[in-house]
Every structure is written in structure tokens, then in C-alpha cells.
Nucleic acid binder design. Sequence first.
DNA 1: ATCCAGGATAGCG
DNA 2: CGCTATCATGGA
Length: 300
Amino acid sequence: MTDQTLRLLPGSDLDLEMTLHSGQVFHWLRHGNGFLGAIGDHAVYVEQKGENLHASAEQAELVRHYFALDHPMDRILATFPRDETMIQAVQFSKGMRIIRQPNWECLATFITSALKQVQHIRAISLALRQRFGRSVHHGKFEARAYPRAEVLAGANLEALLECKLGFRAKNLLATAKIIASGEIDLEELGKRPTSEVRKTLCRLPGVGEKIANCVLLFAYERLDAFPIDVWIARMLRERYFAKRATVRLGDLQEFAAEYFGPYGGYAQQYLFHHWRLTQQGRRRSSEEPASWKLNPPMAR
DNA sequence: ATCCAGGATAGCG
DNA sequence: CGCTATCATGGA
């Protein structure tokens, strides 16, 4: 297996570690100086050295596509509003990209994300992959693919509960059955307009507005989709609705859709990353948030 | 021990 | 429509 250097596009940049730990994907493992994981059914090792991203030669296009190295970051950042909160988030999250995830594993993973901390989502993803996913290889590297819908549809509830899914288990199982049956074709769905995709996704058990928007943003590349989770809601209320006493979720959605522009999803991801790391450190009594930034905690 | 986590949903007025 | 209780699990 040969090692190829992928040069980043001029004027753009990538922070691999930050991107992998920003709450989009939850399965990459530190390996040597890089990361080992699966992109769909491919075992992939990636390593960043300065401006360059290293990956196997025959996986160059796969890696380039997954990490969206073609996204025009300068143009995207130029569309963001110029308020203080946004500027700070962009500075803090410089180099982060919205990854292009496979449909099913994105949908399934975010169903398991409901009311869970990032580390727990990670533990669940790894447990599901270990128990139900097939082993994939590339050269000396081995990884676990995300289990296909057909496999999870055939799993029993108890086995899923052993993977610590809690009340999410029945939702994942029910949705897996619908996808496996072909009643909803995730690939075909991607050709439909955003509002229709969102509406269809929300019909699935365990999928509401927030998770549907995550799938739109992280899998269907609708870069305007703006998921509002507890962190984003808190941030919006504090920074953009400080005067108002009562702010409904609908108010936040309406505001975000027009204020953050055509790449609102990107803005959201930068805001989420910045807010989560800084506020999490602030609420913690003992340790300093600076160490989190350099070495975010990862479940084994 | 108590509270919270990249929520969804049924049940209520 | 808007509000609330509830759903498992683990970490802080």
C-alpha cells in the first residue's frame, strides 16, 4: 500500500482532528499519528501533517469527497453574518468542515444521539459497529463498517439494549425495518427538494425536526439546514434573543433560517463547536477548558 | 445525590 | 397550536 499526499486546495484548510471530534461522526479512533475509521464500507487511515492530508493512493478521491476538501471555504465564510458571536466561533473552529456522510449511517447514528452526550453517542456507535457491523480491511488497516439497515432490522431488541441504546433502541429498530423494507429509499430521497426530504425523514420513528436537519446537513449536503439542539438553542437565546423573556423553538428556527444565510448549516456547526467546548469547560469546576481544546476526551 | 445530555412523542388544554 | 411528562443511561 502506497502513501499519497493530498494537497489541500489553495486558500482552503482542514483541521482533521477538530473535524472528527465536532459531533458529526463518532467512530474514528486515534491510530499512530492519525486516525483509523470506516468511510462507508472502506477501512481508512488518515493523517494530517501540516497543510497536507495523507491517505492511501487508491482512496484519495474517497477521502477527498468524505472530508469535502472541495468546499469553497472562503466563499462560505464570507456569507456568515459579521456579529461578534459568529466571528469568535469562526476563529475558534477554523479548519472544520461538514463531512459528507453515507445516508443510512448518518440517519441511524443521529437516531441514537437523542438526549445523549457526544461521548455516549460515540460509545453506542462503536458498540453497534463492533457487534453488528462487518469487518473491513485495507492493507494492514482494519475497521468496522456501520451495520446495514437490513442487519439492524433483523436484530432483537435485547441485543440493541446491550449496546446501551436505552429508549432509542426501539426507534432504531423500527426505522431500520422501514428502510430495509424499501418503503423509503434513502438514495432516491436525496434527489428530492429539501422540504420534502425533511418531511419524509420526520415520518421515521425517532426522527423529528432536529435529527432530520442533521441528516440533511451531514448526509444530503443541504448546507442551509440548521439543526437546533440544546446547545444551539441556549446560545441563540443568550446571544441573539437576550432581550426577550420567552423564545419559542419556532422563533429560533425562523430567525436562524434567514439570519445565517445560505450556508447556515456551516455557521451552525462552527457555533455549536465553539459554544459546546467553551461553555462545557465553564460549567466544570475543576479542569481548564484549554486542555479540552488540544485533547478532547474520547471514550475507549 | 442531583442534574444534564447534538430529542421525540403522546397527552393535555 | 403550545406546554409537559416521560422515555434509559452514564458522566460530571
